[in-house]
Design a protein around this nucleic acid. Structure first.
Length: 400
DNA sequence: TCTGGGGTCCTAGGACCC
DNA sequence: TCTGGGGTCCTAGGACCC
């Protein structure tokens, strides 16, 4: 029989901080912050640090103000990634229906596993004790009929707990809460709803769906209506880690890179050099994934934090660094010429969109009368060298 | 010493075509 | 020589997630 609540959301507790201090018992009562260095944000804070009000996503400077004696360390993905992979593999011993949404979170559909392993609550406890035993860290599990409610439940289960929200308890337990608890309602939508006098989930549920659609737009209105009644049935998509660039597959639609400069910069030569560095990285990833993209998009964030983006779609898809860069640098120049003038630049980014698999026929066919400038060969040579000697072995002349 | 980096999806207007 | 609808593509911006 299919259980009423077949969806599990498993969320590691303070994953980065927990893993990085796991073998250092002397740090267990010390506030530890991962990330948040110069101009950065907090990626993870252990529970002692949270007692000072430190939260992930917070500017590092603010965290330092709240707790000056906290120990701050950069994330060590060489340590974190294998732990994450092993945990996700543990999930797959229960069900193949695992959607990995980040290094430290996944949704599981266990409807086919109850016969073998028992009810979802039992499965949750099994997974929790295995993760504790094998990796020395704790996690929390939300259990519900849908991913959106399971996600909400796991947040309430933290730390180191399990929470079930069955459909017949949804209204009683969720309607009194602030709309911001809903998965998919961020700060902007929350503020908007609050301004309309809709503060709790129940307040929104009392509004007719047609009115909601008129107030918030067709899609958001309809989606929100489903969320507040717990009827959203967005399907779990098995796989998915590639979306986050953690190496398990590659993203489908776009690949990009951006960087916040150590100091705000006005000098165009410096900005172009940074753009080339990022472009080389992105194009190499596109090639490695065996894809090409048609749209190049450049993002600039100015010192006042206003962010502008310009894109250009090419007639023919490319994976050639120099072709992407030629477009990107024109977009950058246009942006600097017409953007909020006089402001220094804080961040530059480049993205290749409209990715699709590279078919042999796409090859490097020449437009009539055009000479192949040899860039694809140069790219392949660079890719091979990076493959053999590592990324630091190869630098483009203009980066030296 | 305010505010990262990697993605996805939706909206809305204009161009262009039928 | 007046009015139009529908579909797709492109661009810019914004919201959301971890």
């Amino acid at each position: 029989m299919t259980p009423a609540c077949p969806i599990l959301h498993v969320d590691m507790d303070a994953f980065y901080a927990s893993v990085m201090t796991r073998d250092r018992p002397e740090l267990h009562d010390v506030p530890v912050v991962v990330g948040g260095g110069h101009r950065g944000v907090v990626l993870s804070a252990n529970y002692p640090a949270r007692r000072f009000g430190i939260r992930s996503g917070m500017p590092g400077a603010e965290a330092a103000r709240l707790c000056p004696h906290a120990l701050t360390m950069p994330p060590d993905f060489g340590l974190l990634t294998p732990v994450s992979r092993a945990i996700m593999e543990t999930f797959r011993t229960v069900t193949p229906l695992v959607e990995v949404t980040s290094l430290d979170e996944a949704f599981l559909d266990v409807r086919g596993a109850v016969r073998l392993f028992g009810p979802p609550e039992t499965i949750a406890e099994r997974l929790r004790s295995r993760i504790r035993a094998e990796h020395g860290i704790t996690c929390s599990v939300g259990i519900a009929a849908s991913i959106s409610v399971a996600k909400l439940a796991s947040r309430q289960a933290k730390p180191d707990g399990v929470r079930v929200i069955p459909p017949d308890r949804f209204v009683a337990e969720v309607h009194p809460l602030d709309v911001g608890v809903l998965y998919g309602v961020g700060e902007a939508t929350r503020q908007r709803l609050h301004r309309l006098g809709l503060v709790t989930v129940g307040d929104v549920a009392a509004v007719e769906v047609d009115l909601l659609r008129r107030m918030l737009g067709n899609h958001l209105g309809g989606h929100l209506h489903a969320l507040v009644w717990g009827t959203d049935r967005t399907e779990l998509v098995p796989g998915g880690a590639g979306v986050f660039g953690f190496g398990e597959g590659e993203p489908e639609g776009s690949m990009g890179a951006q960087h916040t400069l150590a100091v705000d910069v006005r000098d165009r030569v410096t900005l172009r050099r940074e753009l080339l560095r990022l472009t080389a990285r992105v194009a190499a990833r596109v090639r490695t994934a065996g894809r090409t993209g048609r749209t190049v998009s450049v993002t600039v964030r100015f010192s006042d934090f206003t962010t502008v983006q310009r894109s250009r779609t090419l007639p023919v898809a490319t994976d050639v660094t120099q072709e992407v860069y030629a477009v990107a640098v024109r977009l950058l120049d246009g942006l600097l010429d017409r953007g909020p003038r006089r402001l220094a630049v804080r961040l530059v980014g480049v993205r290749v969109e409209g990715l699709r698999p590279l078919r042999p026929a796409d090859g490097r066919q020449m437009v009539l009368g055009e000479r192949d400038p040899g860039w694809p060969d140069a790219d392949r040579a660079v890719d091979r060298a990076i493959d053999r000697f590592g990324g630091s072995a190869v630098r483009r002349a203009s980066l030296l």
